[in-house]
């Protein structure tokens, strides 16, 4: 059964567990040499950071986990990263690309 459409806006926070639903497809477009996200009647063009974040969005990791992971990888303060990620994921959630 499908998930009922939420009647309330999802607010992304540190403990949210974001995931792209199965009908949102992120893939590499070899012809254009870029990553793309295919969505109902929409196409999104993620930059490399967004791609990295979205690959970590598996519905199990929290936003906090993802920020910690990237903080390690890039040697940057987790706090800053988290603020960035939350803004990005909130926008994607509002567009229906990410559920949490």
């Amino acid at each position: 059964m499908g998930e009922p459409t939420p009647r309330q806006r999802t607010v992304i926070a540190t403990d949210s567990k974001p995931v792209m639903p199965p009908y949102i497809k992120m893939r590499y477009d070899a012809g254009r040499n870029r990553w793309i996200i295919l969505a109902p009647e929409r196409l999104f063009d993620p930059d490399p950071i967004a791609v990295e974040v979205l690959k970590l969005c598996d519905g199990a990791r929290t936003v906090g986990d993802i920020a910690a992971h990237l903080s390690n990888e890039y040697n940057a303060p987790a706090q800053d990263i988290e603020v960035d990620i939350i803004a990005m994921l909130q926008d994607l959630s509002d567009k229906g690309v990410v559920k949490a």
Partner: peptide
């Protein structure tokens, strides 16, 4: 992230 295209067609 850039939105490349509002769907088209969809609507036709």
């Amino acid at each position: 992230m850039n939105e490349i295209a509002p769907s088209p067609e969809g609507h036709v």
